[in-house]
Write a protein that binds this DNA or RNA. Structure first.
Lengths: 196, 196
DNA sequence: TAGACAGCTACACGATCGTGTAGTCAAGTC
DNA sequence: GACTTGACTACACGATCGTGTAGCTGTCTA
């Protein structure tokens, strides 16, 4: 726990942590208060209700993600940003957002749609081969987010923490390998397209 | 509701449906009983506890998935089975298993590991380009399952039901497009591998 | 210095949860 | 025809949940 943070910030961080680990329903206000080192009444005092606390976490995570990607673009330049990789700093925030999305967050769902629309434009202007850019972007977005949802299983399969340098590097290299070599031959693709 | 099924089967189907929609914690025994058209006591009578009911759903979904893939292989032959596509029949079962996995199911997690191991062997014997077959398989498995987890968001982005013929076809074609064309050029891949 | 006010705690409330217990009912067995 | 057994319901239990209320602090300001 970071004692430098205000109680409000500590509650918000504790909520994001427990919501991510146990889901929205699975994390009680009392648990969050204990994790933050405050009374459960203070959670209510600062955020009003559990739903409002969750909404505050949603917008905080979203805005923080925007800040981080903005910083990344400023550092590396728009064209050099690795679209397939993820930032270690953004990992927990992204994980929270996906979990919140699954539990019915409108803020997180809106972010998903926004990402799909951005990916659709990117695909059109970067020579992606498909005749359904919308579906292409939606599926690839869902696939990338799947890594966050199944983080626990992924760590089990790899035998190491994804937040570690080693695990993070393996993850990124796997992304690069997957997206730089075709998995299906043209004949296989042709057959699969006909069958369905 | 299917009146032909025994009460036990109806409870199990209702549990899989509600567990998938609301998560394990979010679906109460009373809700499941109402959905199945029985009393809540009968759920306990047949399955003993909520955890045991969930375990029964896990093994049922897993075994049913094995049956379905066995039938698919018998029909099409092992080499012709589309590794990227999904079966409409298996869709709800797979969705349940992923949800259950997220909520801490050991049965579902074991299935994930098994899938990763199978994919690892497949990659080694089918000329996949990578020096970390384990990570390659784990990431691609997580990515494919992401589509199930984010089914709701995917349907929102595509504007149609994924269980419909049209939605299912768009999904499969997007898979084929993504896996039959490289997203990164060799130079880009080389740069990304160096950076991290 | 009196008063307003935000930060914070303690405690009680109704609702809902999983679970436990008792009992009804119909079908099968001897 | 008495007895057993499994499917099934009704109801009560303790625990936990989100929420409501009252009151205690310290700080700032008019």
């Amino acid at each position: 726990m970071n004692d430098d943070l205000t109680a409000r910030a500590r509650i918000r961080d504790a909520a994001i942590k427990l919501f991510t680990e146990r889901g929205i329903e699975g994390a009680s206000i009392r648990d969050i208060a204990t994790e933050a080192g405050v009374s459960s009444g203070l959670v209510r005092h600062h955020f009003g209700s559990k739903e409002a606390l969750r909404a505050a976490c949603d917008t905080y995570a979203r805005d923080r993600m925007f800040e981080l990607s903005r910083e990344l673009i400023d550092e590396q330049g728009l064209e050099n940003v690795n679209v397939g990789t993820v930032q270690p700093v953004a990992f927990p925030l992204q994980t929270y957002l996906v979990r919140s999305m699954m539990d019915g967050s409108e803020t997180a769902s809106a972010l998903f749609l926004q990402t799909v629309e951005y990916g659709e434009e990117w695909a059109k202007t970067h020579g992606v081969v498909t005749d359904d850019f919308r579906a292409w972007s939606a599926v690839i977005t869902a696939m990338k987010l799947g890594v966050y949802v199944l983080r626990e299983q992924l760590e089990l399969a790899l035998g190491e923490d994804l937040a570690s340098t080693s695990g993070y590097t393996r993850l990124n290299r796997a992304f690069v390998d997957i997206f730089s070599h075709p998995l299906l031959t043209p004949e296989q693709a042709k057959n699969l397209r006909k069958d369905h």
